[in-house]
C-alpha cells in the first residue's frame, strides 16, 4: 500500500510538469501583460519593470528561470500584489478557504448521505420524491443566488447572523457561507447515494442477507452501506480539492479572505506568477485527493488491490 502511494506520487511529477508547461505558455499567449493599465507607463519605467521580472527575455529563457526557481520551491513574487510573494498569498488565503471548504464538505456528507439513503429505503414514496425534488433544486440554483438570499434573510431581515466577514472563522461567521457552499454538494451527494443504495439493495448478496433472517437494519448497515458509498467516494476526491481551494463567489459575497479570488483576479490581471502558483497548488491538491480516494476504495472493497 505504502509502495503504491509512493509510486503514485512519483508518477504525478510528469503530470504536474505538463500542467506547469501548458499554463506557463497559455497565460503568456493571452493578450496584454501584467503592467498594462489604463494610464500607460512611461516606456523607460515599463522597460525597467520588465527587466526586473525577466519579462524582456525570450519566452523559453523565462520558462527556464521559472522552472529553476520552482525547483527551489520559489513561486516568485506576485506582479500585482506588490511586496508579496505568491507563496505568501497562497498560505495567507488557504487556511480560510480550507476551513470553509472542509466544514462545507463535512456538512454535505453528514446531511447528503443520510438523506439519500433514507430516500432510497423509501423509494417512490412521498418522502423520496420530496427529497429528490429539493435535491434537484439544490443542484440547479447557483451559489450566487443562494448566498445573497441567505445573507439578506438571516443577516439583514432577521438579524440572526453576521451579513459577512471572517472574524477568524468564528462559528457565527461560518454558518451562512458554509450553508451556501454546501447546498449543491448536499443535493448532489444525496442523489448519488440514493441511486447507488437502490442498486445495492437489489443485489443478490443483499437478498442472501435477508434470507438469513437478519433484521433490515443490519442488512443495510452491514451488507449494503459500504458498497453504496463507493460512487460517493469517487466524487469526493476532486470535489474536496475543488471546495478547499476556495470558491470565488462565496468568498466575494461574504467578504472572506480566502484564495478563491486569486484564481480570477490573477488571470484578469495577467499576474503570471500568481496564476501559475494557484494552478500548481490546485493541481497538486487534485492529484493528492485522487490518491486518497483510491486508497479509501481499497478499504471499502477488498477486491481492489494495489500492487
Amino acid at each position: 500500500m505504502l509502495n503504491y502511494a509512493v509510486r503514485r506520487i512519483l508518477g504525478a511529477i510528469p503530470t504536474l510538469f505538463i500542467i506547469i508547461t501548458l499554463t506557463f505558455f497559455l497565460i503568456r499567449l493571452a493578450p496584454g501583460g501584467p503592467f498594462d493599465q489604463e494610464q500607460t507607463l512611461p516606456p523607460e519605467i515599463e522597460a525597467n519593470l520588465k527587466a526586473a521580472y525577466h519579462l524582456d527575455k525570450p519566452m523559453l529563457v523565462q520558462y527556464g528561470y521559472y522552472l529553476s526557481n520552482l525547483a527551489r520551491g520559489d513561486f516568485g513574487p506576485s506582479f500585482k500584489f506588490k511586496d508579496f510573494t505568491v507563496t505568501q498569498l497562497i498560505w495567507q488565503g488557504f487556511p480560510v478557504s480550507m476551513r470553509l471548504g472542509l466544514t462545507a464538505m463535512l456538512v454535505a456528507l453528514f446531511v447528503g448521505i443520510p438523506l439519500g439513503s433514507y430516500a432510497a429505503l423509501r423509494q417512490n414514496s412521498r418522502v423520496d420524491y420530496s427529497v429528490m425534488t429539493v435535491a434537484m433544486v439544490g443542484v440547479a440554483i447557483p451559489n450566487f443566488v443562494v448566498a445573497p438570499l441567505l445573507s439578506l434573510i438571516f443577516g439583514i431581515y432577521l438579524g440572526w447572523l453576521p451579513v459577512a466577514g471572517w472574524n477568524d472563522g468564528a462559528l457565527s461567521h461560518l454558518i451562512l457561507p458554509v450553508t451556501a457552499l454546501s447546498l449543491p454538494y448536499i443535493a448532489y451527494i444525496a442523489r448519488l447515494t440514493r441511486g447507488s443504495m437502490i442498486e445495492v439493495l437489489g443485489t443478490n448478496y443483499v437478498r442472501t442477507a435477508r434470507a438469513k433472517g437478519l433484521p433490515e437494519r443490519t442488512v443495510i448497515t452491514r451488507h449494503a452501506f459500504k458498497a453504496a458509498l463507493l460512487p460517493v467516494v469517487s466524487f469526493l476526491g476532486p470535489a474536496t480539492a475543488r471546495i478547499i481551494s476556495g470558491s470565488l463567489v462565496i468568498e466575494q459575497i461574504f467578504g472572506l479572505p480566502g484564495i478563491g479570488r486569486y484564481f480570477v483576479q490573477g488571470a484578469l490581471n495577467r499576474d503570471y506568477t500568481l496564476v501559475m502558483g494557484v494552478v500548481i497548488f490546485y493541481a497538486t491538491l487534485i492529484i493528492l485527493f485522487n490518491l486518497v480516494v483510491d486508497l479509501v476504495y481499497a478499504w471499502l472493497d477488498p477486491r481492489v488491490q494495489y500492487e
Binding site: Y205, R207, T208, G213, K226
Partner: peptide, 22 residues
C-alpha cells in the same frame, strides 16, 4: 426473520454474486 435462516434455509443460483464482497 425468526423463521428464515433458522428453520428454512435457502441456497441461491449464482454463488459469484450471492455473498457480500466486503
Amino acid at each position: 426473520n425468526t423463521i428464515r435462516g433458522r428453520h428454512i434455509g435457502m441456497v441461491f443460483q449464482d454463488p459469484m454474486t450471492a455473498l457480500t464482497p466486503h
